[in-house]
């Protein structure tokens, strides 16, 4: 957590993907045109959100097994960081949708379910605020977090495959792999995902460190 090589790696990857996201060549597509470049900005948000939520579940499980307060704090802070990325993902998605599908909220399954998945984690944060006693709060929140995680997986990965979606790869739309994610785009897309995941993890560690400092000061 305190080493800096992966932070530098994340920063380099994000800078690389931003610069080449604007400059590299993209295949000519109808409707999307150049906005296909949003793939390097919008999609990595979701990847880092999912990674952060998984980190949170990991720490919740750890908390239940050894009752160490540090794990509880890690679980909350990674949810906070994940929510930040989720909101960014929703906003960029809405902007992109406005100019390609015509409406900011196009009643697309993935859009709806992503919003619901965020609601799930807002509920988690509300639950934490509702309980005053610290140990009890940590325990109950960890239980809800673990209980909600499989539901989020079902929401984001299973249900969209069942119905039609405007997103690529669902309901008859060909996936990105089929034609548009050519080798040029892969060269930028994968580093972008990795870079943003690292940046997300970095944000989470910063949040965790600040809040543990706050805790030491008040205690």
């Amino acid at each position: 957590m305190y080493k800096s090589w992966w932070k530098i790696l994340g920063a380099v990857l994000v800078v690389y993907s931003t610069v080449f996201g604007f400059l590299s060549s993209v295949p000519a597509l109808p409707i999307l045109h150049q906005s296909i470049r949003n793939l390097y900005f919008h999609v990595p948000m979701w990847f880092s959100m999912i990674v952060l939520f998984s980190v949170s579940v990991y720490h919740s499980i750890k908390y239940l097994s050894n009752n160490n307060e540090e794990h509880d704090m890690k679980a909350v802070q990674s949810v906070n960081a994940g929510v930040l990325f989720g909101v960014l993902g929703i906003i960029t998605g809405a902007i992109w949708a406005k100019f390609t599908w015509g409406q900011a909220w196009s009643f697309d399954v993935k859009q709806n379910f992503a919003a619901i998945a965020l609601l799930l984690y807002f509920a988690y944060l509300v639950l934490r605020n509702a309980i005053d006693e610290e140990q009890k709060r940590a325990k109950i929140a960890a239980i809800y977090n673990i209980f909600a995680f499989p539901m989020m997986v079902v929401l984001l990965f299973v249900l969209p495959r069942l119905s039609d979606s405007l997103h690529p790869g669902n309901g008859g739309n060909p996936g990105f792999n089929a034609y548009d994610l050519d080798s040029h785009m892969r060269m930028v897309f994968y580093p972008a995902c990795l870079g943003w995941i690292l940046i997300g993890y970095w944000i989470y560690t910063l949040l965790f460190r600040v809040s543990s400092l706050e805790k030491n000061k008040t205690a």
């Binding site: 379910f113 619901i116 609601l119 799930l120 509920a123 639950l127 909600a148």
Partner: peptide
């Protein structure tokens, strides 16, 4: 209500 709605929507 708050806790159950997001879980029950899917």
């Amino acid at each position: 209500a708050i806790l159950s709605f997001p879980v029950i929507i899917p």
